[in-house]
Computed example of a mutant assay.
Amino acid sequence: MEEILGIAGMSSDIIHLRGGGTRNEFFCQILSSASNTSVYGGPVEAAAVGNILVQARAHSKIDGIEEGRRLVEEEMDIRRWEPERSERWKEAKKRMKDLIK
């Protein structure tokens, strides 16, 4: 993730994870800790929710993407995982970088 963001000239302190993978709390916590980044997970049915929002916009039921985002944040189950900040994760990251070289 760091390399991709670096190449793109961007930075981020949040990962947004959507879909069924967000049901796996263990995966979400490991992703957060391994990346040292907050992970926001949900909605589980992101594709269906996106489809509904597109249709709502097409039928003038919502004004635009910002309103759709607000609705999702207010009405859907969005969870947050924070990284475990420990030496163990720093060591694992260093080992992974050494393997990639």
Rank of each mutant, 00 (worst) to 15 (best):
E2S: 15
E2M: 10
E3G: 15
L5M: 11
L5Q: 11
G6I: 11
G9A: 14
M10W: 13
S12V: 12
S12R: 04
I15W: 02
I15E: 04
R18W: 15
R18E: 14
T22C: 07
E25P: 00
E25C: 01
F27R: 03
F27S: 02
C28I: 00
Q29E: 11
I30W: 09
S33C: 06
A34D: 07
A34Q: 04
S38P: 02
Y40Q: 04
G42D: 02
P43G: 02
P43M: 03
P43V: 08
E45H: 02
A48G: 07
G50M: 05
N51D: 09
V54K: 06
V54Y: 02
Q55M: 10
A56Y: 06
R57G: 08
S60F: 08
I65H: 11
R69S: 11
E73Q: 14
E73G: 11
E73Y: 05
E74R: 09
D77T: 12
D77P: 01
D77E: 12
I78R: 02
R79V: 09
R79N: 10
W81Y: 10
E82K: 12
E82W: 01
E82R: 10
E84L: 13
R85E: 14
S86R: 04
E87S: 10
W89N: 02
W89F: 10
E91T: 06
E91K: 07
A92D: 03
A92V: 03
K93G: 10
K93I: 10
K94D: 13
K94M: 14
K97Y: 10
K97C: 09
L99A: 13
